[in-house]
Design a protein around this nucleic acid. Structure first.
Lengths: 302, 302
DNA sequence: TTCTCCTGTTTGTCCTGGACAAAGGCGTGT
DNA sequence: ACACGCCTTTGTCCAGGACAAACAGGAGAA
């Protein structure tokens, strides 16, 4: 794995940086500096992929590419430590350690047991807001640092999905309002944010219809325009190109009936101004609860 | 809105055709033929976007671009109309109708209720083998024919996932053998086959560790080599390039300890000879039950 | 007949190097 | 302090060319 190499398309997919941007950075700043294969195509070593991921996070937080692309990995990490103060907030250290131990031991069964126990202890809402959400951040950062492997991150995601889906299935009751359609745009693969929102909304009695990931814009619009939907909720992970997101959101907003609300959230939009009219921008998972209350105030039950 | 114009990036996002492909088609087939703005950038009228969407559907179904890109919209629609008619299956017609009705009505809650009821009636194994598996085929074909939309297919997949995951969670017990690692290669997004296998194995007492989709070969190998795994099971959907699959399987087989079995299945390998030594090729979902018995015979409990 | 192998064509992805507009930063004048 | 205009940075787009993988169709073998 240390020696694995990646094509430019793979780097685009993994970092969210377009091929054009990758070539331009190489030309302008001398980094990334991929090897070339026999046909002259770029081959990126793993190490450069990881450095690009660090750069991406800093750029997302407002640093300018010219100022961070040439920096070395340690310099980038130091800078990230500045920008992102340790968010050790609500989680007990022992809990984190226990989860990490399961991951390193590749013990999915035990991990799921722990998640289940945590869920039973505090209930679904607090479980999502105070447990899963911060844990996701920690896992993401550990992966960025190379502390855990891809397979281990997958294992975590899978178990959380299991627990959340089971919990949601237990909550579901028919006919509650509002009716919410949840999905992501094409090229966005992360389903966890969607599930967390679905869990929160389900506990509040909303009727959630999740399409999973990767639904084309006009399919979303067509389904929502069918008249069965009050709110469309979209999730964007950190790797999703902001420009695509904004563009797609705008297009979807135009295609949607004005009566249908549009909620957007996820790390991919963090720190961005809520620049689009008539679109609810959720800064965190729990923000959807506030938005839901607002919806209920605006739509009193007859 | 009908007369809106689109940049090449918007077309890429809405059709899934990359910028390079759009330019090449224009150069080779004379379509799309976008207008140009003051800076010479391509501006696609709405009408061409819709024609591109029709083309995309035909290409997805196996037509070659050279044969469909130059056709007019009416010709494309006529061509979409004539596709293979529905085949027979073992499923009760009323069951299929009921499921289809839920999909067309975008009613995920009712659909999940039906799936749950079917599961309760016949048990997890029969549910997977005689219900979900043939239904998957039917849904896939209906989509191919254009009878259902992408969003509706997503809805189906999502509900089946919910039901299966809940059922698996109920089955799970610790420590059973063998210990099976389930996942797919990168670029393979379909998780349903994995879940079906996991469900069958779980009912037989095996300890399943699913990594979900898209785990790199080296990560699979490293995790399996950790000594906690007896069997690695991979799934390939129909869209997966056979060559990549065979190549990856070979690399993984080489990287795996000989004591670890490797099982491969899914529509992507159907009809292929079991050409790779020391790899179990599963022709259908239920084949994993036979493979499991064979494993138990080869590894008597001490 | 049916199957397999081979060959020419089709097709998607990648390359280079250049152009330009939108957005960001900065200094000046009010 | 704030507003305005200028310069720099940055992302996206363009053209035209190269190449390997996938495919189709024909020749030859079973």
């Amino acid at each position: 794995m240390k020696n694995s190499h990646h094509s430019i398309a793979a780097i685009e997919r993994d970092t969210g940086l377009s091929k054009d941007v990758l070539r331009k950075w190489e030309q302008r700043y001398g980094f990334p500096a991929p090897l070339r294969d026999a046909q002259g195509e770029r081959i990126y070593p793993e190490e450069q992929l990881q450095r690009l991921r660090l750069i991406r996070r800093l750029v997302d937080r407002g640093r300018r590419p010219g100022a961070v692309v040439p920096l070395s990995a340690p310099e980038l990490e130091a800078m990230l430590a500045d920008v992102a103060p340790a968010p050790e907030s609500t989680l007990a250290l022992e809990t984190v350690d226990a989860v990490m131990a399961c991951l390193k031991g590749h013990d999915g069964v035990t991990l799921q047991g722990q998640l289940d126990r945590a869920l039973m202890k505090v209930g679904l809402q607090l479980f999502v807001v105070d447990f899963v959400a911060p844990l996701n951040v920690l896992i993401g950062e550990a992966w960025l640092r190379g502390d855990i492997e891809i397979a281990e991150e997958h294992l975590y995601t899978e178990q959380v999905q299991n627990v959340l889906r089971s919990a949601i299935a237990r909550q579901t009751s028919t006919g509650g309002s509002p009716r919410v359609l949840l999905t992501t745009f094409p090229d966005e693969l992360h389903a966890l944010g969607l599930l967390m929102v679905e869990a929160l909304l389900a506990t509040e009695g909303a009727t959630c219809t999740s399409l999973g990931t990767q639904t084309p814009v006009d399919d979303i619009a067509r389904l929502a325009a069918g008249g069965q939907i009050d709110i469309v909720a979209l999730s964007f992970s950190g790797a999703y190109p902001v420009r695509h997101a904004v563009d797609g959101i705008r297009r979807l907003r135009d295609a949607l009936p004005p009566s249908v609300e549009l909620w957007c959230g996820g790390a991919g939009l963090l720190g961005r101004r809520p620049s689009i009219a008539a679109v609810e921008h959720l800064e965190s998972v729990e923000a959807c609860l506030g938005a839901l209350q607002a919806w209920h105030r605006a739509h009193p039950t007859t």
